[in-house]
Amino acid sequence: MSFTGFPEAALDFYDDLEIDNSRVFWDAHRDVYRDAVAAPMTALTAELADEFGDAKIFRPYRDVRFSKDKTPYKTHQGAFVAVAPATGYYVQIGAPGVRVGAGFYHAEPERLAFLRRAIDDDLHGAELEKLVDGLQRRGWEIDGDRLKTAPRGWAKDHPRIELLRHRSLIANRDYGFEGIIHTPDLVDEIRAHWRQTRPLLDWLVQHGG
Score class of each variant (00 low, 15 high):
Met1Arg: 13
Ser2Arg: 14
Phe3Thr: 01
Ile19Ala: 14
Ser22Glu: 09
Phe25Ile: 02
Trp26Gln: 03
Asp27Cys: 07
Val32Tyr: 08
Val32Gln: 09
Tyr33Phe: 15
Ala43His: 12
Leu44Asn: 02
Leu44Cys: 09
Thr45Lys: 04
Ala46Phe: 01
Glu47Ile: 05
Leu48Ala: 04
Asp50Val: 12
Glu51Trp: 05
Phe52Asn: 05
Phe52Ala: 08
Asp54Gly: 05
Ile57Glu: 08
Ile57Trp: 06
Pro60Ile: 12
Arg62Met: 05
Asp63Thr: 10
Arg65Asn: 11
Ser67Thr: 13
Asp69Gln: 07
Asp69Leu: 07
Lys70Phe: 00
Pro72His: 09
Lys74His: 14
Thr75Leu: 07
Thr75Arg: 11
Phe80Cys: 03
Ala82Gln: 08
Pro85Glu: 11
Gly88Lys: 00
Pro96Ile: 05
Arg99Met: 12
Gly101His: 01
His106Trp: 14
His106Phe: 15
His106Met: 10
Glu108Ala: 15
Arg111Val: 09
Phe114Thr: 08
Arg116Trp: 01
His124Gly: 02
Gly125Met: 04
Ala126Val: 05
Leu128Met: 14
Lys130Leu: 13
Leu131Asn: 11
Asp133Gly: 12
Gln136His: 06
Gly139Arg: 12
Asp145Ile: 10
Arg146Ile: 11
Arg146Val: 15
Lys148Met: 11
Ala150Gln: 11
Trp154Tyr: 15
Lys156Ile: 11
Ile161Asp: 11
Leu169Glu: 03
Ile170Lys: 02
Asn172Tyr: 12
Asn172Gln: 07
Tyr175Ala: 06
Ile180Thr: 14
Ile180Lys: 12
Ile180Gly: 09
Arg195Met: 07
Gly209His: 04
Gly209Glu: 03
